[in-house]
């Protein structure tokens, strides 16, 4: 192969990589072609080709820098955001609140922080999602506005009554971690030590739920408690009770619950904290429902 043919081959290869968007590979090939020409200056028009190659290499370097800098994805249209929310709400057939949460997280992952913030602002109203929604609100505010703005939002929560001390502590730890990792020196207010103590909860062996709303209104159902951790009790619901499973959505407040313990029975209220499909083991296909007992 003649010198000219060798140069042509290298340049052709570099051009193809360039048109394919393989910028680093194209640059390497252009540089290699340039070095080859420099070693073989007897080639026809070598000076002209070298000048042209210098320009190409510079242009490609600019392109590489531009691609590397494209770290912040653009805000897309509402239609695309709706699609993202819909496609990445994996629990939409089982649990609408969980699905909304997944959709909001997906929007944030795809850099749609403003829309994501709107979604999390709705979700913070749901007791079981309050803390995770609050953390994500702060995360979005850092991205859209600044870390200072997120701290201001935290201060607003501190002076309000939406979040308990325990919840605020958890959120503070999350925000502190972001501040520690940043270069900014920002003061994060402490939480005043009004730690809430949960009242002693008895061991609950079973419960009776009386529905005061929804399609099951007026009916009552009894469940054995399969596990208890503090004020959270877990129940197993057979997959044959499809309507019941659907009715007991996450975030639903149950105002009339009769709690049975080995030493006493007492009325109270609770909130559906989570609902999980059991995927393996002897209870496979059934649902595990966590109910948080509310202090009244």
């Amino acid at each position: 192969m003649s010198l000219v043919e060798q140069i042509k081959k290298k340049l052709n290869e570099a051009d193809v990589y360039h048109t394919q968007g393989l910028l680093n590979e194209a640059k390497i090939k252009y540089v290699s072609a340039k070095e080859f020409i420099e070693k073989n200056k007897q080639a026809q028009n070598s000076r002209k080709i070298l000048v042209a190659l210098e320009k190409k290499i510079k242009a490609i370097e600019t392109e590489i820098i531009k691609v590397d800098r494209e770290t912040k994805p653009p805000e897309t249209s509402e239609r695309i955001q709706d699609l993202i929310k819909d496609l990445f709400s994996f629990s939409k057939d089982n649990d609408s609140h969980a699905a909304d949460f997944e959709g909001a997280v997906a929007l944030a992952k795809f850099g749609q922080y403003e829309r994501s913030l709107k979604e999390f602002n709705k979700l913070i109203g749901i007791e079981s999602l309050r803390v995770v929604a609050a953390k994500n609100i702060l995360r979005c505010r850092v991205e859209i506005f600044s870390l200072k703005d997120a701290v201001a939002k935290f201060e607003e929560w501190l002076s309000g009554s939406l979040l308990t001390s325990a919840q605020l502590s958890e959120i503070r730890m999350f925000l502190k971690d972001i501040i520690d990792k940043s270069i900014d020196d920002i003061y994060l207010p402490e939480i005043e030590s009004s730690i809430e103590y949960l009242p002693e909860i008895l061991d609950i062996s079973s419960i009776e739920i009386q529905f005061d709303q929804g399609p099951e209104k007026g009916k009552s159902v009894e469940f054995d408690v399969s596990f208890q951790s503090g004020n959270i009790i877990s129940l197993i619901i057979s997959n044959q009770n499809k309507e019941l499973i659907d009715d007991l959505s996450v975030g639903l407040k149950l105002n009339n619950i009769q709690f049975y313990s080995p030493i006493a029975m007492f009325p109270g209220a609770g909130i559906v904290a989570s609902k999980t499909l059991i995927k393996s083991g002897p209870k496979k296909g059934n649902y595990c429902l966590d109910i948080k007992i509310l202090n009244q």
Partner: peptide
């Protein structure tokens, strides 16, 4: 896509 036709999402 981005400007350079790279899939963004």
């Amino acid at each position: 896509n981005t400007e350079g036709d790279r899939t963004l999402f």
